[in-house]
Design a protein around this nucleic acid. Structure first.
Lengths: 230, 230
DNA sequence: CCATATTGAATGAATGTTCAGCAAATTATA
DNA sequence: TATAATTTGCTGAACATTCATTCAATATGG
């Protein structure tokens, strides 16, 4: 009855098998990317505190000193990795938003759906995000980048809540609701990452949709497979 | 217009200034507790990866070897600390629940309010929780204890959602809604911990109440200061 | 004194960083 | 085209540091 939880790609998948110069001598950018991917792997597999330069180098099948050559220190590698994930996530939701048309209901639904897309929401990435969250409080450098749902995202949610409220005369406070919504999404990510219970990408999305349904009853309706805008 | 955000107690507050034997030779239990508090301090101040035995010992104003004497290893100290926070949180919500009477609406409101009580929801504790979350995925030992909102809590939320639904004929799926609610609470904690934006305990609680209001419109009503059961 | 708690220096393992040297790619020269 | 010179990417051993753990010596309270 439950779709055999789509265990996302194995953590160590050969990701960039593109024929880009592999053996020796790849371009600076290719190597940096390769090392960043290896870092995400390591964060996901061993956690922040046990991610070592050696493990990253091994994961990239390169020598020990390589990271200090392309990045300069472990700290800078980690910041670059976080920046990469941040940029990727931003591009992802902006893209979903742009494709959603002009209707606020559609736009909000698109944002929520995008959040549980395999591209950004898989064990590997979620584990890496959480590793950074755990260190963010005590590291100013991480703090700004750790909240994937940043100011832009938050403002957009607020704008959408306000528009839906104006359209249907809901009684809620759009500020509080936007905060609740982004917290809900992040909380669901956390649950997914923990991997306890039987929470899967599907159930998480259903829970988020349940929120949309009960909060904006005049905008959405229950469908066989998710929700639909009225 | 905004209450000067109640910056919770300073991280290094002299917590147990009780005249319990302080100088030399305290009982086993007193020392353990003292070291656990120092561990929470360190986790909050420096994060998991930079929490060292030396820092814990210094924080407790004791010598370097002390932790290995009372706990046995760093690992066991950390597990004991997590267990302590877990027990404390559990006792806190159970207590709030027991005091809430027999009405499901009151009980749910009590649980949500308890979640933002200073006793369990302050920068120090939230930071410590988050430190563990960041390591939980890669450490089976932490995994079970890291989800403060455990199976019992989740089941209770489900039960309450179901009862409210039965009382007022709401259309939601109680499973999904209970998941959404617990994720919302955890997500708000995460936001509070990050300390970005202007999210305070008050705004977080308001956002959670906004959720209750819109989801259970027949049970709660907006009040000057929060919500009230109808 | 005896049992127990505590100290703090010593130890050894783990790990980030450095760097001299090597090799592949690229360019210059004949 | 062949060869030399140079740049650039990469290696891995050596080094320095940090840190958990051990333990012999010491202090304390009963």
């Amino acid at each position: 009855m439950k779709t055999i939880d789509l265990e996302d790609e194995p953590i160590e998948a050969e990701r960039q098998s593109s024929p880009e110069k592999r053996g020796r001598k790849a371009s600076k950018e290719v190597r940096r990317q390769q090392l960043i991917e290896a870092t995400i792997d390591s964060l996901a597999k061993r956690g922040y505190s046990e991610t070592t330069m050696a493990d990253v180098a091994d994961g990239a099948k390169l020598s020990r000193g390589i990271v200090n050559f392309h990045f300069e220190s472990k700290e800078k590698l980690l910041v670059a990795t976080l920046q990469y994930m941040y940029d990727e996530y931003s591009a992802h939701w902006r893209n979903a938003y742009d494709k959603a048309g002009v209707n606020a209901g559609d736009q909000l639904k698109a944002l929520v759906t995008a959040d549980f897309d395999r591209a950004v929401c898989n064990k590997r990435k979620l584990a890496a995000w959480c590793a950074f969250w755990g260190e963010a409080k005590s590291r100013p450098t991480y703090q700004a980048l750790s909240g994937a749902r940043d100011t832009d995202y938050q403002n957009l949610l607020f704008d959408l809540c306000s528009r839906l409220k104006a359209e249907a005369g809901y009684g809620f406070d759009p500020h509080h609701l936007a905060l609740a919504l982004s917290a809900l999404l992040e909380g669901l990510w956390l649950r997914l990452m923990m991997g306890l219970e039987d929470v899967t990408r599907e159930t998480a999305l259903q829970a988020a949709n349940e929120f949309l349904l009960t909060t904006f009853p005049k905008h959405y309706t229950r469908e066989a497979n998710g929700i639909r805008r009225l």
